Simulated assay, not measured.
Amino acid sequence: MRNLALSAMLLGLMSLPAFAADPIAGMWKTQPDDGSYAYVKIGPCGANFCGVIARTFRASGEYKSPNIGKEIVIDMVPEGGGRYHGKVWRPSNDKIYVGKISLKGDQMALSGCILGGLFCKAQDWTRVR
């Protein structure tokens, strides 16, 4: 009986979604853009990943931006090997771009592109501990 309960528990843990421990999940600090930066909370949204602005900062310190709570990383699909594709929103010009993410440990390279990748802007984000 005890072995049966243990087996059932292990089987249940194995059936958790693969993204439950995905390295992209967590809090990330953006690179400054037009003098401000943010902490973005990334987590699962359906089968993909999304990021919401959690806190905002200027050189003078934290402030309450109207962008808090808005989605900045949109439907990032895991490709494997620390790579993701989806969309990103740039608050400073209120535009959405085709986005790509590449992770290496606690460093994230995020890019937003138009015209099939002909023109891109990139930022380096770091994980907040």
Rank of each mutant, 00 (worst) to 15 (best):
R2K: 10
A5W: 13
L6T: 10
S7C: 11
L11G: 07
G12M: 05
L13W: 03
L13I: 04
M14Q: 06
F19E: 14
A21E: 14
D22P: 04
P23H: 05
M27P: 08
W28D: 12
Q31C: 08
P32I: 04
P32G: 08
G35Q: 12
Y37N: 09
Y39F: 13
V40C: 03
K41L: 01
G51Q: 01
V52L: 14
A54I: 05
R55Y: 08
R55D: 14
F57N: 02
R58E: 12
Y63V: 03
P66M: 06
N67C: 05
I68N: 13
I68Y: 05
I68G: 09
G69A: 07
K70H: 13
K70G: 08
I74M: 12
I74E: 11
I74N: 12
V77N: 13
E79T: 06
G80Q: 02
Y84M: 07
H85V: 13
H85L: 07
G86I: 00
V88K: 01
R90P: 00
P91Y: 05
D94F: 01
K95Y: 02
L103H: 09
L103C: 10
K104G: 07
Q107T: 15
S111C: 01
S111Y: 02
S111H: 02
C113M: 01
I114P: 02
I114L: 01
L115F: 08
G116I: 04
G117K: 06
L118Q: 12
A122L: 07
Q123H: 05
Q123P: 04
T126C: 05
R127N: 06
V128T: 04
V128E: 06
